[in-house]
């Protein structure tokens, strides 16, 4: 298994890889991400599990499944003639996330210093332009044990926050959680100096054969600017089913679900009530964003 994984990995290196292409995964790290959304309110401490998938040249980070879907290389054959074809007549679904829930995913190629951010609104996936985050890290001689790994400390400033990161050369990749990257080893933990942002190591696992950093996309994402994306996202929070109707051309009722911060899904009347609360709280809650500058 190891051998074929390596073969697949090395075969990939010879091909020029773009950041957004799915790559064979080597290992994956799960972090507990903690973020105080509003300094004035302690109950706005947001907590979720996020995953870093590392490939030879790049990495992917976001609300990804710890276990990735094995890629299907074969194409689907058409149904045999005379078979009963069932036409799908279902309705699309609009899912609104509560405050703080990470709804974008970052895909890096560290060798080429490329980054792609993807995020969805309604049923569409968008790709948003970002510049590759470069952090001027200062390495210190402090060490600590994270999981089974010996990590060394480094400090650096990014987007208005001063971070302390713990990286290990035992995992020789420049990847890390979120946009924190560029150290000579994988970052397993990071915190900001104000105690408002934490990336805490949860678990790590070697990738299974055929696991990729990114699931094969049904469709290429549509490239947009951040401001156009924000506008679409605001529109979606205002009228989720309306936006999905406009995206798909489907008329009639669209299914609607609300995902709360405990990862529970709500439907019907409860979902509408929670969406109403989200709209009211919008600005009040998120006064302490992840990126200050």
């Amino acid at each position: 298994m190891l051998k074929s994984l390596l073969l697949a990995a090395s075969a990939f290196i010879t091909v020029s890889a773009r950041a957004q292409q799915p790559e064979p995964m080597l290992f994956k790290v799960e972090y507990q991400f903690i973020h105080l959304l509003n300094k004035a309110k302690n109950d706005t401490l947001h907590n979720e599990k996020l995953v870093l998938r590392v490939s030879p040249e790049g990495s992917a980070y976001g609300r990804l499944d710890f276990e990735a879907v094995i890629q299907k290389k074969e194409l689907l054959p058409p149904p045999p003639p005379g078979s009963v074809t069932i036409t799908a007549v279902g309705r699309p679904m609009a899912i609104v996330n509560d405050w703080g829930i990470t709804d974008d995913a970052l895909f890096f190629n560290h060798s080429k210093k490329e980054i792609q951010k993807t995020a969805s609104v309604g049923v569409m996936l968008y790709s948003i332009k970002e510049s590759y985050p470069t952090i001027n890290w200062q390495i210190t001689s402090n060490t600590k044990q994270v999981g089974e790994y010996t990590c060394q400390e480094a400090t650096g400033t990014f987007a208005g926050r001063k971070y302390t990161a713990w990286f290990t050369t035992e995992l020789p990749s420049q990847a890390g959680p979120w946009k924190l990257n560029g150290l000579p080893g994988t970052i397993l933990e990071a915190t900001d100096d104000k105690g408002e942002v934490f990336f805490i190591f949860n678990r790590i696992a070697q990738a299974r054969e055929g696991e990729m950093t990114q699931n094969e996309l049904y469709k290429e994402p549509v490239s947009v600017t951040q401001s156009a994306f924000n506008k679409a996202k605001d529109g979606f929070d205002q009228n989720p089913s309306g936006v999905v109707q406009a995206q798909t051309g489907v008329t009639g009722n669209i299914l609607f679900r609300f995902r709360d911060r405990n990862d529970k899904f709500h439907s019907d009347e409860a979902a509408h009530r929670l969406l109403e609360e989200k709209r009211k709280k919008t600005k009040a809650v998120l006064s302490n964003p992840l990126e200050l500058k």
Binding site: K3, S10, L26, F66, G147, Y149, E170, L171, Q206
Partner: peptide
Amino acid sequence: DESAEILSQVVVKQPPIITRGD
């Protein structure tokens, strides 16, 4: 050199994962 040895550096110190597939 490309080598199998490299993965020994990335030996992951956790139990294996249950297959889930599709």
